[in-house]
């Protein structure tokens, strides 16, 4: 447990408009989703984009975080952190969770591939992923593609070593204020 929750130290920083560390179950996603959609900024369109990025990426935490915690219903749910920063000309959506170190390369390759596409390329890639049969689709993949499409900026991925076999995976997505 302590791994996830000691990595992010700047939870209270001035430009942070919202942050959360804990289990990412469905209740968390819909509750924070709603607050993001309605209270981050005065720009409704911008809020909606941040909300959509949040849903796509946060779902991955509940599936893929290698730290799990029991929730009220007795189900287990992945643990992670998200932070929304308000900067001069953009918002930063940052999401992190611990992963098995061996998954670092896979994640990095995925993001490099996504970043190498232009918008049309990304749209085509998303359609290809969507056409794959259920199960083979790789829920995480299409979510990352969608986040890149929504943000119109490259995905920023980094890893912090926690232990020998464990890393903290951080993905940051920039959302410009001026479309």
């Amino acid at each position: 447990m302590s791994a996830t929750k000691s990595v992010f130290t700047r939870l209270t920083g001035k430009n942070i408009v919202m942050s959360y560390t804990g289990p990412f179950d469905g209740q968390v996603l819909s509750m924070f989703g709603k607050n993001i959609e309605h209270s981050i900024s005065a720009d409704k369109k911008l809020n909606k984009t941040i909300f959509k990025v949040f849903i796509e990426l946060a779902q991955n935490v509940s599936y893929y975080s290698n730290e799990q915690e029991q929730t009220k219903k007795g189900e287990s749910s992945g643990v992670g952190t998200f932070i929304i920063q308000n900067n001069d000309d953009h918002y930063n959506f940052i999401l992190g969770n611990p992963i098995d170190k061996k998954h670092e390369i896979i994640l990095k390759d995925k993001c490099d591939k996504i970043n190498s596409y232009d918008r049309d390329g990304l749209r085509t890639f998303k359609r290809e992923l969507r056409k794959l049969p259920q199960g083979e689709r790789g829920t995480g993949n299409i979510g990352l593609v969608q986040a890149a499409l929504l943000s119109r900026n490259p995905l920023n991925v980094s890893f912090i070593e926690i232990e020998k076999e464990k890393s903290f995976y951080i993905i940051a997505v920039k959302i410009n204020k001026e479309a």
């Binding site: 302590s2 929750k5 000691s6 939870l11 607050n35």
Partner: peptide, 26 residues
């Protein structure tokens, strides 16, 4: 010091944002 203490102890849950009834209940 909030910043430092986050490192040394285990955070079970943390939240920053609007504190409404739903968040409090959760």
């Amino acid at each position: 010091s909030l910043g430092q203490s986050l490192f040394s102890e285990e955070i079970r849950i943390s939240y920053k944002g609007p504190v409404d009834g739903k968040i409090i209940t959760y």
